[in-house]
């Protein structure tokens, strides 16, 4: 596959992820570690629907969105009175629960995607080549067009939402939840809605990833992936539209920069393993992100493209 197509598709996936996480982290002020799990819900649902029922991309991805929105209640309802550390711990619990399901819902002798072997456990599932509007997603060009379309639609919807009174409500909730409740606003409902929207969007990105990588395993729902997603948003900058896009560009720059380091063996971190992995590239990527986060916290805590204001 053309290298630049790979980078562009990778960018659309991670930009969509970052846009969705920005709703929760940037606008609601909530740090979640369960985002990768909702990404994986989109991936797995797409894989199962396309493999078992032969669904094309849009209905299969749409089902992934619906499932993720419903399962977002597993995070938003139990944690609706929590903020800060407590919310983070709740999201960690949900992440562990969902990752456990992806890891353990399998049995030998059954077809992957069947009721008794839903996820095929640690072995993962291959994903059937899908199509959209009659265009085969085997073609990188078609995948890229789909990725750009999904990114634009998600960015547009998010933009409309966050520039509306709903967005203002979320930002005010982030600033002072109690004061907002004192104005008669149902902040708990707003938070449930925000988490549902973010989960739906990230599930769409997860479906795109599954269609692109043609393989999905429990590593996509790992805690590392959630932390990486959070790092992308924090490095790019929260609370505006530029931040997630800048974060996604940084992710690719770091990933690809590491790939060209002289001591990395050729072939490590292949395109099919850009998410998940466990190879040298993935380890170095996490280290590079950690270092970048430390530097940013010291010198530019609002992120690279975050809101900047002098006193």
């Amino acid at each position: 596959m053309n290298y630049w197509f790979h980078l562009a598709i990778y960018f659309t996936i991670f930009a969509t992820v970052a846009i969705s996480l920005n709703i929760v982290t940037g606008y609601c002020g909530l740090f979640t570690l369960a985002h990768a799990a909702y990404f994986a819900i989109g991936s797995y649902t797409f894989a199962i629907a396309s493999a078992n029922w032969g669904w094309s991309f849009l209905p299969a991805a749409g089902l992934g969105v619906v499932v993720a929105v419903i399962l977002s209640l597993a995070l938003s309802v139990p944690s609706w009175r929590f903020r800060g550390d407590n919310f983070l711990l709740m999201s960690l619990a949900v992440q562990a629960m969902l990752a456990g399901i992806f890891q353990n819902w399998w049995s030998t002798g059954s077809t992957p995607g069947s009721w008794t072997n839903l996820t095929n456990g640690a072995s993962g599932m291959s994903v059937r080549a899908s199509e959209v509007f009659g265009l085969s997603l085997r073609e990188p060009g078609h995948l890229l067009l789909l990725g750009i379309g999904i990114l634009l639609v998600c960015a547009f919807i998010t933009r409309v939402l966050l520039s509306s009174p709903f967005g203002r409500l979320l930002v005010c909730m982030r600033d002072d939840e109690l004061a907002l409740r004192g104005l008669g606003k149902n902040v708990r409902l707003a938070r449930v809605q925000a988490l549902a929207i973010a989960s739906g969007i990230v599930a769409l990105a997860g479906a795109l990833y599954a269609a692109y990588a043609r393989f999905v395993d429990p590593q996509v729902a790992s805690l590392d992936q959630s932390i990486l997603m959070l790092a992308v948003v924090l490095i790019g900058g929260t609370g505006n539209f530029r931040g997630p896009l800048v974060g996604a560009v940084c992710l690719i720059a770091i990933e690809e920069g590491i790939r060209f380091l002289p001591f990395i063996e050729a072939g490590a971190g292949t395109t099919a393993r850009v998410i998940g992995g466990g190879d040298v590239v993935a380890s170095l990527r996490i280290m590079a992100y950690g270092l970048l986060l430390v530097l940013l916290m010291h010198f530019r805590p609002q992120g690279i493209a975050g809101r900047y204001r002098t006193a």
Binding site: C172, D176, R307
Partner: peptide, 8 residues
Amino acid sequence: EIRLFGTQ
């Protein structure tokens, strides 16, 4: 402590 929404 007033509690305006400081970023708005």
